[in-house]
Design a protein around this nucleic acid. Structure first.
Length: 444
RNA sequence: UCGAAGAUAGCUCAAUGGUGGAGCAUUCGGCUGUUAACCGAAGGGUUGCGGGUUCGAGUCCCGCUCUUCGAGCCA
């Protein structure tokens, strides 16, 4: 009977067949210990010369790493290890003998591995990350479905920029001039919210930023909910409820993967609502108290260091300083309007502030969510578009959403790969997606 | 885009300006409980590219290319 390795414990003392690949092999004279993988996990086989045919013994001797094999044997408990199973091999069918495999169970550099990403994904660590990513995406979909959200896919070809054209990839679009790859589905999601109440988009987005950091890729997946009649506080309520569900479900269902990745689960277990909510003003106070300055470098390399001034956006050192006293995601809300996007609603109590919220992940994983209550007043929105120098004609359809039954509404965007990096405790975001796209890499 | 570090065997790394090595991988041999198994042997090199200094350059100098890490921008 063909079984998968992750279900092997259900077949102890029975004869089963595994279809997979040889991950590694150790031998000790008349004994061989091949390790098989089948996509669901790893299992060690035991091949004894006296209990298999000469043909099987010889065939095993010829196998190379990553050769594809169909093996038959009896499942037994490991003689020394608790909850570990072995396969006492009786039969072997060699599907294909692999050429010498470049990725060994030894150390490799990141560039070497990135060049072979299509093979690197077979390693247990990368496979574990992909399983956690799958669980994150599935729990997002389940949460949204259970809470009445409609999946509302936004287009990837767009004619306009959501927040300026400098960070957009462009391509020719027939006789209509340039099309841009979407950097956010938000504006479309807003139209969905006014049509369907609660919607979300989930798909790839693109940023042509030459950002060579461990937190950036040029093509990343984003989940963007948009809710009619939600104000900024409703938005934050949903964020903490949603994040709590996803994190707690992933640690419940993917414990063995997270253990393999050496993830400290006690830190994730603390991620339950409510989350701390601090205003931008309070965050700036923290930075002043901790003496975290703003450092700006000029073109000729000079550094200008000054106390953190009100109005600036936070950089990586500031985010870390704000987050380090908390063991949960921190929601920073009510930002200086100048530094934020045109579509954010101003705080009625202080027009210098925008009703935006950034969620900073614990342990220095940075911003995973950016959201806001949207400007629902037609005149104000037109003024913002002018102030930001954006072409009014491109936003006529968006302004229609304010002309015809405008309502208060809010939403946010969650970066999937940042979420995966945080939950898996990854050094670098390049491991959080099957094929990371970065400014210096588009292959494989 | 800016700053720092780096590029030597298939991989990960050594090598005072003076005959380029090791571990792993590969091939061959040994071993009945191995866990990145171990032991023995063999093969494997235009030291990123171009120029310069020197009796002599992997090593020092200049230029270029690429990579990594950090900053900015952001999710």
């Amino acid at each position: 009977m063909w079984v998968y390795i992750d279900k092997i414990s259900e077949h102890v003392d029975k004869e089963v067949t595994i279809k997979g690949w040889l991950y590694n092999i150790r031998s000790s004279g008349k004994l061989m210990f091949p390790e098989f993988r089948d996509g669901t996990g790893l299992i060690q086989g035991v091949v004894s010369k006296k209990s298999v045919s000469e043909q099987v013994w010889d065939d095993f001797g010829k196998l190379t790493q990553e050769s594809s094999v169909i093996v038959t044997g009896t499942v037994t408990k490991h003689p020394k290890k608790e909850n570990v199973y072995e396969l006492q091999v009786s039969g072997l069918e060699v599907v294909s003998v692999a050429e010498p495999y470049p990725i060994t169970p030894k150390e490799h550099g990141v560039d070497f591995l990135a060049d072979r990403r299509h093979l690197w994904l077979r390693s247990p660590r990368q496979a574990s990350i992909m399983r956690v990513r799958n669980e994150i995406l599935q729990s997002i979909r389940d949460y949204m479905y259970a809470n009445g959200f409609i999946l509302f896919d936004a287009p990837i070809f767009t004619p306009n920029a959501c927040e300026g054209t400098s960070t957009l990839f462009s391509t020719d679009y027939f006789d209509l001039g340039k099309a841009y790859l979407s950097q956010s589905g938000q504006l479309y999601a807003e139209s969905g919210a006014l049509a369907l109440g609660k919607v979300y988009t989930l798909g790839p987005t693109f940023r042509a930023e030459n950002s060579m950091t461990r937190r950036h890729i040029t093509e990343f997946w984003m989940m963007e909910p948009e809710m009619a009649y939600f104000d900024i506080d409703d938005d934050m309520d949903m964020i903490e409820d949603f994040l709590t569900y996803v994190v707690q479900r992933v640690i419940k269902n993917k414990k063995s993967e997270l253990d393999y990745l050496s993830r400290d689960l006690s830190k994730l277990e603390k991620v339950v609502k409510p989350f701390p909510r601090i205003t931008y003003d309070e965050a700036v106070e923290i930075l002043k108290k901790k003496d975290v300055p703003l450092i700006r470098k000029t073109a000729n390399g000079e550094e200008h260091i000054r106390p953190f001034p009100w109005g600036e956006d936070f950089g990586a050192p500031h985010e870390e300083a704000i987050v380090e006293d908390f063991d949960k995601p921190v929601m920073v809300h009510r930002w200086p309007a100048e530094a934020k996007a045109f579509y954010m609603k101003r705080d009625p109590e202080n027009p210098k502030l925008a009703l935006g919220v950034d969620v900073l992940a614990p342990e220095g994983f940075g911003e995973i969510i950016g959201g806001s209550q949207r400007e629902d007043n037609l005149q104000y929105l037109e003024e913002r578009i002018k102030e930001h120098g954006l072409p009014m004609s491109e936003f006529e359809w968006y302004l229609d959403l304010r002309r015809y039954g405008s309502v208060p509404h809010s939403g946010f965007g969650l970066g999937i790969e940042r979420m995966v990096s945080w939950i898996c405790n990854l050094e670098h975001i390049r491991e959080a997606i099957p094929f990371a796209r970065r400014p210096n890499r588009i292959r494989p």
